[in-house]
Design a protein around this nucleic acid. Structure first.
Lengths: 115, 115
DNA sequence: CTCTCATATGAATACTTGCGCATATGATAG
DNA sequence: CTATCATATGCGCAAGTATTCATATGAGAG
């Protein structure tokens, strides 16, 4: 007969957040899970930048950057400011710094464990 | 003529980590960016669990869970322990807790801002 | 050895997504 | 008004990926 794990299942089921919340969480991390977006966020850690400057920096199309900035904006990870024809983007939240920093720490630990 | 942003570009270029590091970081977050994997990680926050218990909990195939666990294992986010025929998975790292917690905080702030 | 339970894995499929092209919007200058 | 610079967006394609099915591996019981 298959083995039993009802006891643990009950306990975990109680503590597990709602499906909706867990999906939102995954969606948030999905945004960090793309090289282009991570690069943009990292650049904005240093300074606010306009779209074409970011495109220059990453060697990509203005269109590609605009698409990604829209995603970051929809997630409230960046904000923008207009100055004439130019639009400057900036981080909207200190959590970005913390999340990125924690990611780094894990990478470093993972790496040192391998040595 | 197009506007100039060489000054900022130089500064940002200096501070930007290597491409490889940024890719690794994105790859790490990519792992958190899937509902099934987030659920698994959240469950493991509460207790170590065997594969079929997780499959039960999420109402998914044992195969699907196994595939995802492999990805989590390859990223060193979970470890495992054998006990007879059963294999118990557990979190391998406290950073998982921190990263998830920060994600939550952002979601909450984002939500309160909207009200 | 065989049989069964627990888990892992390869293949096929359906779905998602990042990118560039072409074009639209929006603001300023003249 | 028109022309130009900066940015946004719809479309199409190529690449990636999460799932399931079928099957393989691996451990313990008898």
């Amino acid at each position: 007969m298959p083995h039993n794990h009802e006891a643990i299942l009950q306990k975990v089921r109680q503590e597990l957040p709602t499906d909706e919340l867990l999906c939102d969480l995954a969606d948030l991390f999905k945004i960090f899970g793309d090289t282009t977006r991570v690069k943009i966020l990292y650049a904005l850690l240093e300074s606010e930048m306009c779209v074409c400057a970011i495109a220059d920096l990453l060697g990509m199309t203005q269109s590609a950057i605009s698409h990604q900035l829209r995603i970051l904006k929809d997630a409230d990870l960046v904000g923008r400011r207009r100055e004439g024809k130019t639009i400057y983007y900036h981080l909207s939240d200190e959590h970005v710094r913390t999340i990125v920093a924690q990611g780094f720490e894990h990478l470093i630990e993972e790496h040192t464990r391998r040595v």
